[in-house]
Write a protein that binds this DNA or RNA. Structure first.
Lengths: 177, 177
DNA sequence: CGAATCTCAGCGCAACTGAGATCG
DNA sequence: CCGATCTCAGTTACGCTGAGATTC
């Protein structure tokens, strides 16, 4: 029960299982290959589902993330630079994302009173309302992870947190509950 | 020890932990939000590392996947249609991907003797050599998953397999070792 | 002055739509 | 004739580089 944007119909077998057999015969590191392929494929599937859910609200998942970030900021506004570093997106991509949110009336641009070079993106009341309903829709869909139990979700988070830490996503600190 | 393509420097805290606190206060489903955000962020980090490794071979991860698929096919050749359904990519994207591999001399196009409408993409000897060295480089980098132990890798694969199955990625069958 | 912030123009890659050619 | 396969043209989205304007 789902969307399947990319290829089309369900395959008669798990393509990763199929590749594993050949892979093990020729090379090693089967577990790494399976994990990384799962990561790519699952991400593609899940983001496809989320983007479809968000489309009726005029959002993509990337724009939704920016909106949530502003929603939870102290003053409902953040410098562009801050948005970029939090969401791992290039400065010019932040400009583009905020442009679209501004165009939809969900965000406004303001000069940064504390730094004349900077620009603040501030969420509007319409933006707050959209975040609310979009989040409700995403939660109703379990964020595309309905197949996972609580232990699975926690396990995926913990494992991928190690991957992020190793890659320098953040300065290490103990995981909080 | 890593690349960090997107945002730039390491954040002084885990952005997902930070979001979790706010999220829990306002909404529920914290575990789902953390798992899905991890999935997106880790995928972006890992594919960035892999693309960087593959760049010296003139490949992206998408093209590498296509090349591996051909490498492990029975005759070293597959119909375009088959490549698309296996890799979850649109038919026109398969055309584009194969175009580039053909341009690099790693693949050739052949008419499909069993179907006059179809086209076969066949891996060349140069293609086989590139797959070999590119795979070696990827394995040396643990596919970007050096932070994960064997149990973690198996756990991520198993959990994400359930996500894929739920979304109709393949027709259910018991996982094989 | 150098460095930081942001925007714009332009390029590359990839997904998609719609059309057309070819063949089963 | 209908449907399937593939390619091409054109659109859109997005990430990146390079450049420029502004300000610290």
């Amino acid at each position: 029960m789902a969307s399947k944007k990319g290829g089309g119909k369900a395959l008669p077998f798990d393509p990763i299982d199929e590749a594993s057999r050949q892979w093990a015969r020729r090379w090693g590191a089967v577990e790494q290959m399976r994990a990384v392929t799962s990561l790519m494929r699952a991400q593609q599937i899940v983001i496809g589902e989320l983007d479809e859910i968000l489309r009726v609200h005029g959002l993509t998942f990337a724009r939704y993330e920016a909106l949530v970030l502003l929603r939870f900021s102290q003053r409902g506004a953040l410098p562009m630079k801050e948005i970029g570093s939090r969401l791992m997106v290039h400065p010019t991509s932040v400009t583009n994302t905020i442009d679209r949110l501004v165009g939809a009336g969900l965000v406004v641009r303001r000069p940064n009173p504390e730094d004349g070079r900077g620009v603040l993106a501030a969420i509007t009341e319409a933006g707050r309302q959209v975040v609310e309903v979009a989040t409700r829709d995403l939660m109703n869909a379990d964020f595309g992870l309905a197949a996972l139990g609580e232990a699975d979700r926690a396990g995926v988070f913990a494992a991928l947190r190690r991957v992020r830490a190793e890659a320098g996503d953040f300065r290490d600190a103990p995981a909080s509950a």
